[in-house]
């Protein structure tokens, strides 16, 4: 009988996915469901949203009614539409920052860990510099200086969140470089690129994915926080900008307006962050088998 070839990549990936879902546990699966739901919402906002959020579709500060499920804001724009389009912005910012930050961290960590020596030291000094800087003041100042556009915000947030990931991933890369099977590959004359793609990246990928989710959830809250402080992009519709507009109206303190203007975006933010945290738990369980029930023996 002919020797068994490698199973085709597609079914191997499908099996890996099924294994991943099983290993993530109930909380992990719940988290995934929540995040997927919000991403779907963000993608489908143009289709689901009843009105254009910028259009003035009614009187200002209307209570919820058949025409406006969540009422209207102080300019007469539909709050539900704002919420759905806000999801788009928030999710996009969160994911983009997460992606940029993780890719940068991964690149630096791989180069530093695999080269070692002077290259490693030089790169780690750069990482140290970024880590030493007090994040929040810098982000505020930089965002204010560069101007309140959504892309500046993404850039600034990514700039101050890649460094920690670089350190963490580099630690794992260093540990992997000492593994015997990696040394064996070096003995055969493997180039650094081969070591990275074949031996290091597959092992480091789960950690990178975990960092991606963590940074995304941080960016989500950071964007909302910055917008609330008035450093957001006033031309965009995001949950943070909704908070900003809400807090500028004193009516919220003595009428019931906050129930349908402030609470929905707040709940959405909390729910999405919760989903991301649960997803993180699921990923931790996948990556560290000792966290599985039964000790994962």
């Amino acid at each position: 009988m002919a020797s068994a070839p490698d199973p085709p990549r597609r079914t191997a990936a499908a099996r890996a996915l099924r294994r991943g879902l099983r290993g993530a546990g109930t909380s992990g699966r719940a988290g995934l469901a929540i995040v997927v739901a919000f991403v779907a919402l963000a993608l489908l906002a143009p289709l689901c949203s009843p009105y254009d959020p910028r259009a003035y579709t009614g009187d200002p500060l209307l209570a919820p009614s058949a025409g406006h499920w969540l009422g209207t804001n102080d300019l007469g724009q539909d709050i539900l539409s704002e919420l759905l389009w806000g999801a788009r912005t928030s999710v996009a910012v969160g994911l983009t920052v997460g992606l940029l930050s993780t890719l940068a961290a991964l690149y630096v960590a791989l180069v530093a860990g695999v080269h070692g020596g002077r290259v490693d030291r030089a790169l780690m000094r750069v990482v140290d510099a970024f880590l030493a800087v007090p994040r929040l003041p810098f982000i505020i100042v930089l965002a204010a200086y560069l101007g309140a556009s959504i892309w500046n915000l993404i850039l600034v947030l990514a700039l101050f969140s890649w460094a920690k990931g670089a350190r963490v991933i580099r630690a794992q890369v260093l540990s992997l470089m000492t593994r015997t099977h990696v040394e064996a590959a070096r003995l055969f004359g493997a180039s650094r690129a081969y070591l990275i793609t074949r031996h290091i990246l597959p092992e480091v990928a789960p950690l990178a994915a975990y960092k991606l989710i963590k940074t995304s959830s941080y960016a989500l809250v950071a964007e909302a926080g910055l917008a609330f402080l008035g450093i957001g992009d006033p031309s965009t519709k995001s949950w943070g900008m909704m908070f900003y507009h809400v807090q500028s109206r004193p009516e919220i303190y003595y009428t019931g307006i906050w129930l349908w203007w402030f609470l929905p975006p707040a709940l959405c933010l909390v729910l999405l962050v919760l989903g991301l945290v649960l997803l993180q738990h699921g990923m931790e369980r996948l990556v560290d088998p000792s966290l599985q029930p039964g000790g994962g023996r």
Binding site: A4, D6, T180, H181, A184, F188, G189, A190, Y194, H199
Partner: peptide, 27 residues
């Protein structure tokens, strides 16, 4: 070089065929 620890010297992700063919691929 053949290493001491049989549990560490083979990558846990590579099947026997790939593990033994690895030197050929790299070379």
């Amino acid at each position: 070089l053949v290493f001491q620890d049989p549990y560490a010297s083979l990558s846990p992700r590579l099947r026997v065929l790939d593990a033994v063919a690895e030197p050929l691929r790299i070379q």
